[in-house]
């Protein structure tokens, strides 16, 4: 999966979160999930989207540690490179 770029991942995460109902104005890489009102069910949905797109599995414990959009992007990029 060497073709996965950080920009692609960030764009996917941001668009997915908007699709899940987060306010577009509040979305940015540094936004926290708490501020975006993104909860564990949203992250489970995001994990499904990411798995579908990049064949990257985000497990429960990994996801539970995520605090910001950037955290999620970093984790996905890291896993995709493995």
């Amino acid at each position: 999966m060497s073709t996965v770029t950080r920009e692609d991942v960030e764009a996917l995460v941001l668009s997915s979160l908007e699709e899940l109902g987060a306010e577009a104005d509040a979305l940015s890489p540094t936004a926290t999930f708490e501020d975006l009102d993104v909860d564990s069910l949203d992250l489970a949905e995001l994990s499904q989207i990411v798995e579908e797109k990049y064949a990257v599995k985000l497990q429960g414990e990994d996801v539970a540690k995520l605090r910001t959009v950037e955290d999620a992007v970093n984790l996905i990029v890291e896993r995709a490179a493995q």
């Binding site: 069910l41 489970a44 949905e45 499904q48 798995e51 579908e52």
Partner: peptide, 9 residues
Amino acid sequence: LPVSPLAIP
């Protein structure tokens, strides 16, 4: 296709 995490609730 995936079953939504929202399905049960």
